[in-house]
Design a protein around this nucleic acid. Structure first.
Length: 501
RNA sequence: GGGCCCCUAGCUCAGUGGUAGAGCACCUGACUUUUAAUCAGGGUGUCCCGGGUUCGAUCCCCGGGGGGCCCA
């Protein structure tokens, strides 16, 4: 690891070059540069042009970027500069520059920022290049950058010093370009359908709207405990009470839980609420949205994720949770398991025991069915699949099915073996909502410290009348993982949480 | 939290119970169309940290730190 107290020769050399530039009278940290086109724009505008066309037109370019390579031949030299998206070669001839600019050139290091002015041409090897007529020093790279050929491989350094990763690993930059396109496409899709983008609190007096452990903080002036939000759900639904019939929010949630290739303590969720819609309508909207997002982000609906080819073309497969669990259990045990086995606690617990799945005393039949599903089915759901009809017991905010009070109108979308979305017909009956919260309190008393807390203020909002609505959360990070073939969530989060060194 | 694996030059990586190597980068020199430029010369290091075993530890053992993957 580099040390700032004892500088390596390379750092000393770079400092010496900086001092020499100052001695030449160069402003080594100028305030700006009159850039007329980005490197990307220059390349895009002239990459179709032949050498003859460039000779005839003599187009000029005034652009800037970071130096990614220097090939020196004495009086003729080549630089490659990049704006992070595209790369452009600069031809530096001693006889085309002022003496001072050529001296500046000789003091440049790999990684420095430079502005260039010159005419475009093609070299003998047909590479689009700028024949530099002036150079403007823009900033110094005092620390050596990772190697140009292998790039930065060290995973820890890529996360801790993302700027190095972005500088030398083009694939990393590509991931975050796609991420931006995903968010932009989702926004456009929802806004086109009359949804209003809103921002709701990130700090909550009660951490609600999901089943998760919160981060706790404190407000000094009000002397009150606050929780970083685990979900925006209850606030967005308050907005539907207020008559905002279609709302969405794309923002961070915080959950004080483990870190894994699929979990970062802060992560980005889309949540949207759609008055008068039921969960079936949400499935249709979701397949349309994700197909559009896939096209906008990657150019098509077919993507590669690890060893899998995944298709975002609608419609997605639909599968009920208990049926999926029943089938998987039947296959594993080699005998047909009847559907009723998941409906009462005794037989569900017995089935779980046979499957080697631990069951806590506080779990009812619904929770056990969900556990069996998670243990047996999740990993196999590679193609986008709506798993629907969840047990009421694990869904305190969802509306029951009219003909089956043990089941709610809820689905989760699975892609590549993990949960990407969670949606349901929203429970808007305040009396039933209070009963569900009380059930959660009982399960908390029974040892489940993730159970949902009572929220009186939310119940009061429901008492004022919330329209029937469907609501959905989509994990943006996981969606981006699938669309960019990233096997870890840390590869799609610019600055994932790391232990301090 | 548990299991397995990793940490050596700026970067990518070899390697050994006798204080360390390659490629790129870097330094010196040559070179006016190269593109992983080439040619000649140069090795730049707290082998993650601490302790132990040993005549001697980067290597073996113990503890710690950071990271990765899997499991919970």
């Amino acid at each position: 690891m580099s040390s700032t107290t004892e500088e390596s020769d390379q750092i000393q050399q770079r400092r010496a070059n900086l001092d020499a530039l100052r001695a030449l009278g160069v402003d080594v940290y100028p305030h700006g540069f009159d850039q007329q086109a980005t490197v990307e724009a220059v390349v895009a505008a002239h990459s179709p042009s032949t050498g003859e066309a460039l000779e005839a037109e003599q187009p000029r370019a005034r652009t800037a970027g970071r130096i990614l390579s220097i090939r020196s031949f004495g009086k003729a030299n080549f630089l490659v500069i990049s704006d992070g998206k595209a790369r452009l070669q600069i031809y530096v001839r001693q006889d085309a520059l002022s003496e001072r600019d050529f001296q500046v050139f000789k003091l440049l290091d790999f990684g420095d920022w430079i502005g260039v002015d010159g005419r475009l041409f093609r070299t003998k090897t047909n590479e689009l290049s700028v024949w530099a007529s002036s150079l403007t020093f823009l900033s110094k790279c005092l620390l050596p950058l990772p190697e140009k050929w292998h790039g930065l491989q060290d995973i820890e350094t890529r996360y801790r010093q993302r700027y190095l990763d972005l500088t030398v690993n083009p694939d990393s930059r590509r991931v975050f370009e796609i991420r931006s396109r995903v968010v932009t496409a989702i926004r456009a899709f929802l806004i086109a359908r009359g949804f209003l983008e809103v921002e709701t609190p990130m700090m909550h007096p009660i951490a609600g709207g999901a089943i998760a452990r919160p981060f706790v903080t404190h407000h000094n002036t009000l002397d009150m405990r606050l929780y970083m939000r685990i979900a925006p759900e209850l606030y967005l639904k308050r907005l539907t009470v207020g008559g905002m019939e279609r709302v969405f929010e794309i923002n961070r949630n915080f959950r004080n839980e483990g870190i894994s290739t699929q979990h970062n303590p802060e992560f980005t969720m889309l949540e949207f609420y759609w008055a008068y819609a039921e969960y079936q309508g949400l499935m249709t909207l979701t397949e349309q949205m994700l197909a559009e997002v896939a096209v906008a982000a990657t150019g098509g609906t077919e993507v590669t994720f690890g060893e899998h080819a995944i298709s975002f073309a609608a419609p997605f497969r639909r599968l009920s949770l208990r049926e999926a669990a029943r089938e998987a259990a039947s296959a594993k045990l080699g005998e047909p398991i009847p559907a009723e086995a998941l409906r009462d606690r005794a037989s569900a617990a017995a089935l779980a025991a046979r499957l080697g799945i631990d069951v806590a005393p506080s779990m009812g039949a619904g929770k056990i069915a969900a556990e069996i599903f998670e243990a047996l089915c999740e990993d196999a759901l590679i193609q986008p699949t709506f798993v629907h009809d969840f047990p009421t017991e694990v869904s305190p905010l969802s509306k029951q099915k009219p003909d089956d009070p043990d089941t709610v109108e809820r689905f989760e979308l699975y892609i590549a073996g993990f949960e990407v979305a969670n949606a349901f017909s929203e429970l808007n009956d305040p009396v039933e909502q209070r009963r569900r919260f009380e059930e959660q309190l009982a399960s908390r008393a029974g040892g489940d410290d993730e159970a949902h807390a009572m929220d009186e203020d939310y119940i009061r909002a429901l008492e004022h009348g919330m329209p029937p609505a469907g609501g959905e959360g989509v994990g943006i990070d996981r969606l981006v993982m699938v669309l960019t073939n990233s096997l870890s969530i840390r590869d799609v989060i610019l600055f994932p949480l790391m232990r301090p060194r």
